[in-house]
Computed example of a mutant assay.
Amino acid sequence: MSAVLVVNSGSSSFKYQLIELEGEKTLASGLVERIGEETGSTKHKNALTGDETSNDSTPIPDHSAGFEVMLNAFQDHGPSFDEHPLVAVGHRVVHGGSQFDKATIVTTAVEHAIEKLSALAPLHNPANLEGIRAASKAFPGVPEVAVFDTAFHQTLTPAAYTYAIDDKLAKEHQVRRYGFHGTSHKYVSAAAADFLGKPLAELKMIVLHIGNGASACAILAGRSIETSMGLTPLEGLVMGTRSGDVDPAVVFHLHREAGLDFDELEGMLNKQSGLLGLTGNGDMRDVQDAAARGDETAEAALAVYRHRIRHYVGAYAAQLGGLDAVVFTAGVGENNALLRRRTLMGLEFLGIRIDDDRNELDSREARYISAEGAPVAVLVVPTDEELEIARQAAALV
C-alpha cells in the first residue's frame, strides 16, 4: 500500500506521520526534538502494532541526522517502507507569500522562493526548508511537496487583504494580509460540509481554529474570504502567548515610554502576551481552573479572549451575508465546552443556539453542539492537518 510521509519541521525538532493513501490510515508517527543540543530526543510509534519507542541519549546535530534517526526507527520498529512505498513526502510550510496558492512540488526554484519568503516568517520558513532538504537526502527520487499554510487564503479579495498604508511601500515589501492555518481551515470546512450532508459550494461558514495559536476564517462556497491572521500569525484572536490585535501605536508608545527596543517588542507580543501576558499562564486549562477558584485576573483574561472571538463571529457573519454553520476545531476549540458555551452566549439573534448536553459530550468525532432546529449549525469538527497535507501531496504527484 503506497503512503505519504508528512513532515512538520521546526528549528530544533520535527514531527512526522506516515499515512496510507488507501483508507487514509496513519501507519506510524513520531517526534525528533532537541536537534543541535548535546543530546536529542526521539519518539516513534508503529500504529499497526501499537509499539512505541523512545530515546533521550542520541546526539542529533542537525535535521539530516534527525532523518537518519527516523529512518533507523522505521527500520528497527516498522512499518517497512518496502511494504508501504512512498509516493511523496509532504511538508508543512508556513509562508507561501502571494505566489503559492496551492501545494507545489519542490524544485530548486521553489526552495529559493521559500528561502526568500523567510523575511515574512523568520521563525518558520528556514526551519521548514531544513526539513525539505533533509528529506531530499533521506529519500532520493521521492517527490517533495510543499503545502503552504497561506495557500487557502489566496482567494481573499484585495479589499480583504490590503492594509491602508503607503501603496508603493507595501508592494515593495510584500505587506498585506496572508492568513495562516489554511490547511486546517480547508480540511475542516470540507469535513463540516460532509457531516452536514450539504455541498460545500452552498455553505456560508465560520471556522474557529482555537489552539495555542488561534484564527478565525470566513468561508463562502469553500473559499476563504476573510481571516483573522495577517502579514504574520500575530494578528487577530487572543492566543496562548500572542497578543492578537493591538493598536500599532502600542509598539511606538512602549518603545518611547518603556525603552523597549524592537526585538524586545516583537518577542513580547509573540511570546509573552496573550493569556500568558494577562495571567502569567499561557495554558487555557490552567487559566480556567484559576477562574473557577475565583481568580479575578484569570476571569478577566477569559472575558477578553471570548470577546475577541465574538467580535470576529459577528464581523464574519456580516461579510458572509448570512450564516449556515459555525465550526470549532483545534485543541481548545475541540475540547473546551465551557469556552464554546460562554463565547456564543447572547448570539441567538444570529440564529446561534447551543444545546448544553450536546456541547458537554466528550468525543473525537464530528458532532452537532447546536440546539435542535437552530437556524445555524454549530459543530465541533476535529482537524487533521497531516491528512490534508497527505491528500494534497498525493493528488499533486
Rank of each mutant, 00 (worst) to 15 (best):
T183N: 01
P382V: 13
Q75V: 03
S273N: 04
A337Y: 05
G131P: 01
G97Y: 04
H95T: 00
A160R: 11
G10P: 07
S13C: 14
A258N: 02
F262M: 13
V246D: 12
L237M: 11
A113N: 05
H44G: 14
D76Y: 06
Q288M: 10
S363E: 06
T107G: 10
T42Q: 10
G50C: 13
E388N: 09
K186S: 10
H311G: 05
A390R: 01
N72P: 00
L276A: 08
V6L: 10
Q319E: 11
V89S: 03
S228L: 04
V304G: 01
A315V: 04
A127S: 04
E38A: 11
I165D: 03
Y16V: 00
V175Q: 00
A292Y: 09
K168H: 06
Y178H: 03
T104A: 08
P248C: 14
L86V: 02
H77M: 03
A3L: 10
G331A: 09
D362T: 14
I354V: 09
R310G: 03
D286K: 11
A298V: 07
S273I: 00
V327A: 08
D384N: 15
A119C: 13
A390H: 08
V332L: 10
E83P: 02
K45A: 12
D261G: 15
E202Y: 11
I352T: 04
L18S: 02
A164S: 09
S98G: 09
R342V: 07
R256N: 11
F100H: 01
L27W: 02
P158A: 12
L275Y: 06
A303H: 09
V87Q: 15
H181C: 04
I219K: 10
R242C: 03
M345R: 12
G222A: 15
G131T: 03
P79V: 03
P199H: 15
A325Y: 02
F74Y: 10
A103F: 02
P122A: 14
A301M: 08
S189Q: 08
Q174A: 13
V87Y: 12
E334R: 11
G222F: 13
P140A: 00
H91Q: 07
I210H: 05
